[in-house]
Design a binder for these strands. Structure first.
Length: 498
RNA sequence: GCCCCCAUCGUCUAGUGGCCUAGGACACCGCCCUUUCAAGGCGGCGGCGGGGAUUCGAAUUCCCCUGGGGGCACCA
């Protein structure tokens, strides 16, 4: 049986819809996608929703949204369709059932009537006797009559695989090499639940085969399931795909990634202002490398350079510092108009929502040139530019510094006068005038500008002062300086702190 | 308890017996640039988990230990 027609590369990402798209799942999806795109292959999205109690429609949508946001488009899958569909396992039940019947008819599987309690007891005993904690096959040789009687007791059977009692099953893994498993360790695992819904191992085997998957690229946690799937493939007469098991991603403290590590879902990173280019680039490098010194890769470069052979074997710790650095890199190197668009999309859920561009206020595009090289995340735009839109809030120490500097008042008066008289309120012209004023007062530019910065923004750190004033406009700039000046003078008259 | 995987700077990694007095990136620390902060430039700090074995020679091969991770579900 030629399972892989035309030797076409067909890979799949097969999440179970029980929550957001995890950073680990995102990397798995990315690697599959890169592999497909780099080999003229097909990338398939398959939803593994056989856990009825945990799967939700909402999770399916969240996962698809996250994949789309990352730019990982699928060629076959839910909503897209494809000739090997449907692409949700709960819509493929007939396929699993006929495969189950075949195994049963050929004596390769059998019904098991053990109850949860009985199984629990068996496991407890196995553990205490140091045996593998797998099903020992009590129901394996039940006669038809015995089965009928148990059924009459009201027991709903599950279908179990007849696993060979001896021998080895070898997983040939592109990343791990040949991994040997003793069949005796595998046990007679469950294929069909008593509800008639297949279990993971069964569904995945049938689907990978019937969807003609050529390469299974997935997390390490599935490695020890692979021999069970291999046995199934063999029993059903399918040729198995090539396997590649990726090492897991750990938290910064090298413990398994979980909510307590902060952001773990793609959605969270997105809402914190990370851009897809950085997330994809960072994730690509978490477990894969191209050479000894390249770190930055565009999506196109990744597509051309990614290979399974260069995927590492060590579990990688997620380092948000490096992601943040990379995010800043992509933000700095983005065309200003592109960045502005991203910020506009990002802002609606923030405290700046609806403000940019409103009556007399600067627009996002006006501010991007002032803050682009200072931003590490899209959220930084808010921190950096809020004073343009919101009432000034003097941050800690800012007023104190103003008071402490004996020249503050004089500088502010001078600057206010200069700005008020300017007809050309461009950044260049403002710079010219203020530099000259600073020179005349024999004050270094940095010291000269700091009171102005505090007066118009309330902050110790802002974008470049000349550009900031220009965007603020003459009226607003002068008015802010005057207001601050008045506070300062009042405080000095009263001889007390502001 | 049983099975499996993994092990180079704090982190991501390069390295497949001599090119390694172990290279790059993030972080950190200095200096330069500078209008604050970033960015950028230059420099620095910092690592082959331990023990055996093979070899003229081991980060690289083998064994043991230790440590981490995964699995052993009518979860995926």
């Amino acid at each position: 049986m030629n399972f892989n027609n035309n030797n076409q590369i067909r890979v799949r990402f097969a999440p179970s819809p029980t929550g957001h798209l995890h950073i680990g799942g995102a990397r798995t999806a990315l690697y599959n996608w890169l592999f497909a795109r780099g080999h003229d292959g097909v990338f398939i999205l398959r939803i593994e929703d056989t856990d009825l109690s945990r799967s939700t429609e909402q999770a399916i949508n969240q996962i698809m949204n996250s994949l789309r946001w990352l730019g990982l488009d699928w060629d076959e899958g839910p909503e897209t369709g494809g000739i090997y569909g449907p692409y949700r396992q709960m819509e493929r039940l007939d396929l699993f059932r006929s495969a189950a019947e075949r195994l049963l008819a050929e004596g390769k599987a059998y019904y098991c009537y053990c109850t949860h309690e009985e199984l629990e007891e068996q496991r407890r005993q196995a553990r205490s006797q140091g045996r593998p904690v797998v099903y020992q096959g009590c129901c394996r040789n039940l006669s038809a009559e015995e089965g009928r009687l148990l059924r009459e007791e009201g027991r709903q059977p599950v279908l179990r695989m007849k696993t060979p009692a001896s021998g080895l099953t070898v997983v040939r893994d592109v990343i791990k090499g040949d991994v040997k498993f003793e069949n005796a360790q595998l046990g007679d695992y469950i294929l069909m639940r008593s509800s008639g819904v297949p279990t993971y191992n069964f569904a995945v085997s049938v689907d990978d085969a019937t969807m003609k998957i050529s390469h299974v690229i997935r997390g390490d946690d599935h490695l020890s399931n692979t021999p069970r799937q291999l046995l199934l493939m063999e029993a059903l007469g399918f040729q198995p795909p090539v396997y590649a098991h990726l090492p897991l991603i750990l938290g910064a403290d090298r413990t398994p990634l979980s909510k307590r590590h902060g952001a773990v879902s793609v959605e969270e990173f997105r809402s914190r202002g990370f851009v897809r280019e950085a997330l994809c680039n960072y994730l690509a490098l978490l477990g894969w490398s191209f050479d000894s010194d390249t770190n930055l890769f565009s999506i196109a470069e990744l597509t051309g350079k990614f290979s399974l052979e260069r995927v590492g074997t060590t579990a990688a710790a997620f380092d948000e510092d490096k992601l943040t650095w990379m995010n800043g890199y992509y933000i700095r190197n983005m065309p200003a108009a592109e960045l502005a668009g991203r910020i506009v999309n990002f802002l609606p859920t923030s405290r700046l929502a609806g403000l940019p561009g409103r009556k007399g206020k600067p627009g996002v595009a006006d501010l991007v040139p002032l803050v682009q090289e200072k931003m590490k995340t899209l959220a930084d735009f808010i921190r950096l530019t809020d004073f343009f839109f919101l009432p000034i809030k003097f941050e800690a120490q800012s007023l104190g510094k103003l008071e402490h500097d004996a020249n503050s008042t004089a500088i502010l008066r001078t600057v206010s006068g200069i700005l008020n008289g300017l007809t050309d309120f461009s950044a260049g012209h403002i710079e010219e005038e203020l530099r000259q004023a600073a020179a005349e007062m024999e004050i270094k530019l940095g010291k000269f500008l700091q009171p102005v910065r505090i007066a118009v923004s309330g902050k110790l750190v802002t974008p470049g002062m000349f550009e900031t004033l220009a965007v603020l406009g003459r009226q607003e700039s002068v008015s802010r300086i005057q207001t601050t000046l008045a506070m300062l003078e009042a405080a000095q008259t009263d001889n007390k702190s502001i």
